[in-house]
Amino acid sequence: MNIELTVNGISNQIDVNENTPLLWVVRDMLNLKGTKFGCGKAACGACTLHIDGEAVRSCSYPVKNAIGKEVTTIEGLSSEGQIHPVQQAWIEEIVPQCGYCQPGFMMTTAALLEKIPNPTDADIDANITNVCRCGTYYRMRKAIHRAALLKQQNT
């Protein structure tokens, strides 16, 4: 069927089976490759993006549910000329190793900071449940605290 899907502020007309996971629409039809496939079963978080500001695991989210909503992917996290504090913090802490899991973590973190602007370690432990095989969690924790700080300074 034909649907209209707004991703990173741009509206797209696409012809797709409405039950297709949003992940594949974003990756293969809109060619936004920053959102990753890790498991396809909502178990790793590599595919995390935002739907109306909420972190969603897009591999397990049918595209039809996103109609009429704002989808944001890692490519749209920073606004023109202004890098998002989470990405800034990730750069300052030199977090990524292989990098494959990182967009999912950054999207999860960005959504978390909207809810809890200054998360404690316990908040981070409870809310950041994505998988990173390279074991970058140690730097990620530092980056999350730093992002919270940067974000408060910006506003």
Binding site: K33, G34, T73, E75, S78, P96, Q102
Partner: peptide, 8 residues
């Protein structure tokens, strides 16, 4: 890797 470039 931070901006989500298609490198993989």
């Amino acid at each position: 890797k931070v901006m989500g470039a298609p490198i993989f």
